[in-house]
Amino acid sequence: MVRRDVNGLAHPLYIGQTSNTARRMNEHQSDKIRQATVLGGSELHLHFLAEREWERFAIETDLRNGHHAPLNRQDTAVASGLFGLLGR
């Protein structure tokens, strides 16, 4: 989810991945889409070249590491808890 500034530059508000865009947009209807709209979001950019789940996750990770997307911020306790699960 993206907003454009007065110079036409795109600024990511939320970066995510899914195998089912329609389902994911329905899930985000009451939170992320509303929040992105409040922040000036007016575009949804989609990338269709990734064919496998690991490819989608790699692209999402690369984009999230390269951009400050305010709607991707997570509470540190939650994030560390999720990373703790990965080590098991």
Rank of each mutant, 00 (worst) to 15 (best):
A77C: 00
R24Y: 02
G41A: 05
F48I: 01
L82S: 03
G84I: 01
G87K: 13
Y14M: 06
L63M: 15
R52C: 02
H68W: 10
H68N: 15
F57A: 09
S42Q: 11
P70C: 06
K32L: 07
L46D: 01
L86R: 12
A79V: 00
N72Y: 04
S80C: 03
F48Q: 04
Q35N: 13
S80P: 00
F57N: 05
V38H: 12
L13Y: 07
L39H: 04
L49A: 09
E43P: 00
G41Q: 09
L13G: 06
A50D: 15
P12A: 14
L63N: 00
R3H: 12
R88W: 06
L86C: 07
F48D: 10
Q29M: 13
P12R: 04
L44K: 01
L9S: 11
A58I: 00
Q17M: 14
E51M: 08
R4Y: 10
P70N: 06
T37I: 08
E27V: 04
D31A: 10
A77R: 10
H47V: 08
S30F: 07
L9R: 15
G66P: 07
A69W: 07
L44E: 02
P70T: 04
Q74R: 14
A10G: 10
R88D: 13
Q74H: 07
G40R: 12
G40W: 13
K32Q: 09
R34T: 06
R24E: 08
S80Q: 11
I59P: 00
G87W: 03
A79Y: 13
V78Q: 10
A10M: 12
G8Y: 06
N72L: 07
E60W: 02
T61K: 14
R23Q: 11
A69S: 14
R23W: 03
A50G: 03
